[in-house]
């Protein structure tokens, strides 16, 4: 089942074409990696999908509903969870309250003024934390967590609104190699169990080629190649402009 359809997306900043004519689609339960050298337009592309940037042209359709140009809040309400390249959590709140807040927001129960947030039913939040392996740190404030743990908290927050699509911008950046594999394995498992589509950007080619079902290569704002990992790996254009230059693989 096709979950996300992106058609002819384009954005330019003061005459610089950051993204031009990108089209692709994503199925439920599929892990799609978006890769490319620095400045290829990955972040711009991402930010147009999650609502932080308004595209100059093109459409983004999620499960039949158009979300083009909607603000992040509404995009989230339509079932898009996300994690950030540089983690963004609520540093002064305990881990569990980060998740509880997302759960309450999902149910539109934020405008409540009496009962403490901590006393809201913690079971569901704990279950989410359990899923990402953070239950034992539920009461620690996010401000003191290790970076890898923060990434997992973000994942738990992103899952709180039972999303249909996860957008993950460099989900493993800044993590130790072993942690990276563990986090992506976890993500992949959750995605397949719950039928969530995952679009992620990533620098670590190990992670990409191990976990992605499909890979898109972006170069200078255009889609250069798209396909299964083996096909992309074998694509001479990709080897030349991407792997060749970077020389990482």
């Amino acid at each position: 089942m096709t979950l996300l359809v992106v058609e002819n997306l384009a954005k330019s900043f003061g005459g610089v074409h950051a993204v031009q004519g990108v089209s692709f689609s994503l199925a439920a339960g599929e892990l799609l990696a978006l890769i490319g050298p620095n400045g290829a337009g990955k972040s711009t592309c991402f930010n147009m999908l999650n609502g932080q940037l308004r595209p100059d042209q093109g459409r983004v359709v999620l499960a039949g509903q158009e979300i083009t140009g909607k603000p992040p809040r509404q995009v989230w309400r339509m079932g898009v969870g996300r994690t950030f390249q540089i983690t963004a959590t609520f540093a002064s709140l305990p881990v569990i309250e980060n998740v509880q807040l997302a759960l309450l927001s999902h149910r539109r129960r934020i405008l409540r003024f009496w009962k403490p947030l901590a006393a809201e039913d913690p079971a569901e939040a704990l279950a989410l934390l359990e899923r990402v392996g953070m239950a034992d740190q539920a009461q620690r404030p996010c401000g003191v967590l290790a970076y890898g743990d923060l990434k997992r908290v973000e994942l738990a927050i992103a899952l709180a609104n039972a999303p249909r699509l996860l957008l993950m911008d460099e989900p493993t950046a800044g993590m130790a190699p072993a942690e990276r594999v563990a986090l992506m394995a976890l993500t992949a498992r959750i995605a397949r169990e719950s039928g969530i589509g995952v679009l992620f950007t990533e620098h670590d080619m190990d992670v990409v080629f191990t976990h992605a079902d499909r890979i898109m290569v972006l170069e200078r704002g255009r889609l250069l190649a798209e396909g299964a990992p083996e096909a992309v790996r074998a694509d001479p254009r990709v080897r030349e402009v991407y792997l060749g230059h970077e020389g990482t693989h």
Partner: peptide
């Protein structure tokens, strides 16, 4: 009452947006 509000969901949302506007918007908080 103000103190209760600070600990209630509304106050938590208030503290949340102070900590990270980006994240708060990304979980649907205006």
């Amino acid at each position: 009452l103000l103190r209760r509000m600070i600990f209630a969901p509304f106050g938590a949302a208030l503290r949340a947006q102070r900590d990270s506007v980006l994240r708060a918007e990304a979980i649907g908080i205006d």
